[in-house]
């Protein structure tokens, strides 16, 4: 259960989030839609704990914990996962090595034993197969030379391996053709569970045809302007975001 109350955040002197109120019960998938520059990515970065964003007011409580008091890796350990819009390329680090380090770091912080190389290989092979990534891609450097679709699938693979409790999907649909979109959506849907909450951030309604949200929120000019059921996404697709102005 995630509770965001009156969240304000700024980059330098520029206020981007101007009082976000949002509650996401466990097991629900909420979509956040909005025009470019509305603060969608900022919200995901603030929740994941990226440096450079100053929270000036408000609170974020996740499963009873004050999320804002935790650093980035502590948030990951409590189950926060951000699937990035632009996954970073890391030359020289293989996907296998990356996933192994991440999973063991998270297991360790949960007080679980670290997996040895053989156990790890078994887990990673199984999950990669589910997401439709070849074993060869586990051996390649993280995201280096990956197509747009492969990068997004790699994010979903990490999500499947790390088994987070709060998934933030930041424009996971951007740059994907319809086939890649379906594969990514299937991966996300497979991870839906009563213990896991998801925030799906998107500009377009298209993704929500494949990932059915429980709730849809419109974020514009740093605030949630409207909330509704899945039908709100269709309404936005038809009318656009023109109704949402700074004054509204």
């Amino acid at each position: 259960m995630l509770e965001i109350k009156n969240l304000h955040a700024a980059i330098g002197n520029k206020e981007i989030l101007k009082g976000i109120d949002l509650t996401i019960p466990s097991g629900e998938v909420h979509a956040i839609m909005g025009p470019n520059g509305s603060g969608k990515s900022t919200l995901s970065y603030v929740l994941a704990g990226r440096a450079g964003y100053d929270v000036t007011q408000g609170s974020v409580i996740f499963n009873g914990k004050d999320l804002l008091a935790l650093n980035t890796e502590e948030r990951a350990a409590t189950g926060v996962f951000l699937a990035m819009q632009y996954p970073v390329e890391i030359p020289g680090v293989t996907n296998m090595m990356f996933l192994k380090s991440a999973l063991n770091a998270i297991r360790k912080s949960r007080g679980e034993s670290e997996l040895d190389a053989m156990q790890m290989l078994k887990v990673l092979r199984g999950k990669a197969k589910e997401i439709g990534l070849s074993e060869e891609m586990l051996k390649r450097a993280v995201n280096v030379g990956f197509s747009g679709g492969e990068k997004k699938r790699n994010e979903i693979l990490q999500m499947a391996v790390l088994e987070p409790l709060l998934c933030l999907l930041d424009e996971t649909d951007s740059g994907l053709d319809i086939d890649a979109l379906k594969i990514v959506a299937d991966g996300v849907n497979a991870l839906r569970s009563p213990a896991r909450s998801m925030i799906v951030i998107t500009h377009y309604q298209r993704l929500l045809d494949y990932i059915k949200p429980d709730r849809v929120h419109v974020l514009a000019f740093g605030k949630i302007r409207k909330s509704g059921g899945a039908e709100l996404a269709h309404e936005l697709e038809a009318k656009g975001y023109a109704d949402f102005t700074e004054a509204a």
Partner: peptide, 11 residues
């Protein structure tokens, strides 16, 4: 890249 790795649980 440091943020990316930390967001996946590495300190």
């Amino acid at each position: 890249a440091i943020f990316y790795l930390r967001s996946r649980g590495l300190n």
